[in-house]
Design a protein around this nucleic acid. Structure first.
Length: 591
RNA sequence: GCGCCCGUAGCUCAACUGGAUAGAGCAUCCGCCUUCUAAGCGGACGGCUGCAGGUUCGAGCCCUGCCGGGCGCGCCA
């Protein structure tokens, strides 16, 4: 239960009552009314802007309307105070029982606390990673993988039906290049080429991919086909070798993703879409709507490509849907452009019945967003939304020094190396400690150190420490049931200190954090929230050092101890619930 | 030249989709370890939210124009 939304519903009901009795005019727009925690907790538990938003359209003074509302709110169940503040805010305080019942709910539901019905079972497709199947994943892919997976987990928690999807770009020139490189490795496996020959082919641009990861591909091909393709022309072997190599690269990528703990529900093949005639279907569908035409594009202003010349092209009328220019769908060779395939792919997603589409891309795809949204508008009749999350790059550091990476020198860091070095949970959490559109520093030294500076450790420490306190309770009160279910029955009304009550409110806001982050498609908010919970808990823990009667476990007061234990368990539960969204395993014990 | 993203404390970043006196950590300074894990905690210092206008009860957030940085810009995927 999101207590803020619950009270918002009550306030909306009150407002409708005021409309029906004539205090407020009919037809008032209530959509801008919000209920949120006040910035300063001293103001109360909840605040609403209702009076300020509605005063003007209702022809009333904000403070007058606020007073009227306040009078009604004071009679609402659970409200202990309601007061007008500032320009017309209404601050409310809730009776302690409301907060305590949320803590009990948290303990009874465990990690399921925070689950929401916000999504109402609507279908969302989250497409992420979609790296070309031409080699292992490098560290640059990790951020998109983690953000996509965590966003999917967040949406699931918020009540959406989520499909995690990977679009396999297996139809373009890149996979043909992969096939040629695999063929060279195949001939190497047959003894026809040496390592030096491969190097020379790379240098001469005969092949594009030279990585060792293709050696086993060559060996497998040699084992399967013998010398059947050793001396035949490219047209004879390319399709088969390409398909085998792509399949093996996808296995490689799946393994890398598994090391990160990421799995997909659907892999959609670009080549299969093309083969099934879906691109042709999509183009004729759009043609029937008058959205495909032949025309000549203006050259880009300022920076014209050297070989630019005016040329009639087959174009999609993207400008009709918010794009800056119309987009080519056919190359001069007659083949479809990559974009044409993407049009078919997004139409396919719409046809599969998704209510919302989310694509997680690298920041270098920023120029691609508008045209994709134009496509989705065109094929979805405006019913389906497309949100594109652009991930800025990750700067790899080690102790503050940049880690040198260059594809040319072959020293790029693979995803696997990073996971092996610091662990999957660290990679996942750190990748979520920034908004997707801000650059992120990933410092090997920092993310593994145990200090306040390292958010992963700090949050895990809070969880471990909470678990430790509960464990320790076994020695102080050996006869007591310390399970979360039993603690839900503890006399938590005895939690009276300011810090304890603040922490209860913070835990109680977890459902609201889930809903807000899910609605905004911003999983990083969960990371910041968890750090806040951790800080509040560490603070409370340390206070017990200064003042013995503030310790969680008081041998002389079993009832209060159980109440505090309930709060400690609540902290562990909420942190575990949040980490679960990220696919991170909560640590119960630090070594 | 056009489009998108970014610009917040000395540094790294938040700010709950327009709310109240813009918050944390690091760094600096001052305190706190016979204790449930001090690998931690508390306090102080620190701001013209890049600049200038606009919209309204209210702007870090929305609009316009500048300044600075990143990405992209017809047959690459």
């Amino acid at each position: 239960m999101n207590v803020f939304n619950a009270y918002k519903d009550r306030i909306l009901d009150l407002l409708r009552t005021l409309i029906s009795d004539g205090t407020l005019p009919a037809g008032l727009d209530l959509s801008r009314v919000t209920v949120e925690p006040p910035r300063d907790p001293a103001h109360g538990d909840l605040a609403t802007n209702a009076a300020m938003v509605l005063a003007k359209p209702a022809g009333l003074k904000p403070r007058d309307l606020a007073e009227t509302l306040c009078g009604r709110l004071r009679k609402e169940a659970g409200v202990s105070e309601a007061a007008v503040a500032g320009p017309g805010f209404i601050n409310m305080r809730l009776i302690p029982a409301v907060w305590l019942s949320i803590l009990r709910d948290c303990l009874r539901r465990g990690e399921g606390f925070g689950d929401s019905t916000l999504g109402g079972g609507r279908k969302v497709n989250v497409e992420f990673v979609s790296a070309n199947p031409t080699g292992p994943m490098h560290v640059g892919h990790a951020r998109g993988a983690v953000i996509g997976d965590a966003l999917a987990g967040l949406l699931e928690k918020a009540g959406y039906r989520v499909t995690r999807e990977y679009y396999v770009n297996d139809a373009g020139a890149q996979v043909d290049a992969l096939a040629r490189a695999a063929h060279a490795r195949y001939r190497q496996a047959l003894g026809r080429l040496s390592e030096d020959d491969i190097a020379a082919m790379l240098a001469g641009k005969e092949i594009e991919y030279g990585g060792d990861y293709l050696v086993p591909v060559g060996q497998a091909l040699a084992g399967e086909a013998g010398d059947r393709w050793a001396d035949t022309p490219e047209t004879e072997w390319l399709p088969e070798i390409r398909d085998r190599a792509v399949a093996m690269m996808l296995d490689l990528i799946r393994d890398d993703l598994a090391a990160l703990g990421v799995t997909f529900d659907v892999f959609t093949s670009e080549r299969a879409l093309v083969a099934a005639g879906r691109v042709d279907d999509t183009l004729s569908f759009l043609e029937d709507k008058g959205l495909i035409y032949t025309g000549v594009l203006e050259p880009p202003k300022g920076k014209t490509p050297e070989d630019w010349e005016p040329r009639p092209q087959t174009l999609f009328k993207a400008t009709g849907f918010g794009d800056d220019v119309d987009r080519p769908v056919r190359k001069s060779t007659g083949a479809w452009t990559y974009f044409a395939g993407d049009m078919a792919y997004h139409r396919d997603k719409v046809a599969r019945g998704f209510d919302d589409l989310i694509n997680v891309f690298g920041a270098d795809h920023g120029g691609y967003v508008k045209r994709l949204q134009a496509v989705v508008r065109a094929v979805g009749d405006g019913r389906v939304g497309l949100d594109v999350k652009l991930c800025q790059l990750v700067k790899l550091l080690d102790g503050g020094e940049p880690v040198k990476m260059s594809k040319r020198a072959g020293t790029f860091i693979t995803l696997r190396e990073v996971v092996d070095r610091v662990g999957r949970d660290v990679v996942r959490f750190i990748m979520l400690t920034r908004k997707n559109d801000a650059a992120l520093d990933f410092d090997f030294a920092k993310v593994t150190e145990q200090s306040r500076d390292n958010p992963v450790w700090y949050v895990q420490y809070a969880h471990a420490r909470a678990c430790s306190v509960v464990r320790h309770a076994a020695t102080v009160f050996p006869d007591r049931d310390r399970s979360p279910e039993a603690l839900a029955e503890a006399p938590i009304e005895r939690l009276e200190t300011h810090e304890e009550q603040a922490l209860i409110r913070l835990l109680a806001s977890w459902p609201r954090v889930v809903e807000g982050a899910a609605e905004a498609h911003e999983p990083h908010r969960v990371a910041f929230y968890l750090a806040e919970v951790a800080a509040a808990f560490h603070g409370l823990w340390t206070k017990g050092k200064d003042e013995a009667d503030l310790r969680f476990l008081l041998p002389d007061d079993e009832a209060l101890s159980l109440a505090r234990l309930a709060l400690v368990q609540g902290v562990a539960t909420v942190i575990a619930s949040g980490l679960r969204v990220f696919g991170v395993q909560p640590v119960r014990e630090l070594r």
